[in-house]
Amino acid sequence: MPLLLRPFQLLGSAVLGVLRALGHLVMFCGSVLWSAITPRWYFGEIGRQMVRIGFYSLPVVGLAAVFIGAALALNIYVGGARFNAEQFVPTIVVLGITRELGPVITGLMLAGRVSAGIAAEVGAMRVTEQIDALTTLSASPKRYLYAPRLIAAVLTLPLLVVVADIIGVAGGWLVGVNSLGFDSVVYLRNTLDFLEMSDVTAGLIKSGVFGAIIALMGCYYGDRSQAGATGVGRAATLSMVSAAVLVLASNYVLSTLFVEFGL
């Protein structure tokens, strides 16, 4: 091939490689989604995964939320003081937490804790032939392994976000009352008076989508894991990074849609 055409060849093969990978990903996610919405469901596995993904994530989500809420109150107080708008701290904290930070922080924390965990677990099962064993025992890995994780993540993320919302607002309230001189009753009244159901709903819808992203990335990279410790480690890293980036990107897309539709 002439030297001049070489860059085009490299570009072409890179584009084809990306399209191939994207095709694999879409096919995989589509088939896992199909397995999740059609019988048969392994309810025992779904319950186990809900405990692992939801219950065991409570401490990390709660701690992150309380600190985020507290820091948010402080920063809004400092910024608001420039416009004599300190009284808006409770309102902005609750809106910021419910619409944005609650779901996003929960999504990012779980991208690390859950997505990487799923990828490492599924990857180890892949390289030790446990997934092949499932197939030979007539149990579809997509139905038995992946769909329960997807269903559990989609169901538990919104519950975790409700907890994060409450704890995040409580963090702001603690700082507002103890450091910024707010009256406790006034702070809570301002928090509730300006909060609308749609603020909470928007966060919950986002968190359901984040749950799907986190579980699918973990399963996808785990399923494609290469042999050895390096392969499994790489699968965990890739799943965490991909889930985190997709959580942030989908957060922007969903926020735009919510603004468009007035949610």
Partner: peptide, 20 residues
């Protein structure tokens, strides 16, 4: 059909491949 066929086949994997 495939499930029925697999029910008639057993497999011992090299590493036993037991579910942890």
């Amino acid at each position: 059909d495939r499930d029925r066929m697999r029910a008639r086949i057993g497999m011992l994997f090299q590493s036993a491949a037991l579910f942890d």
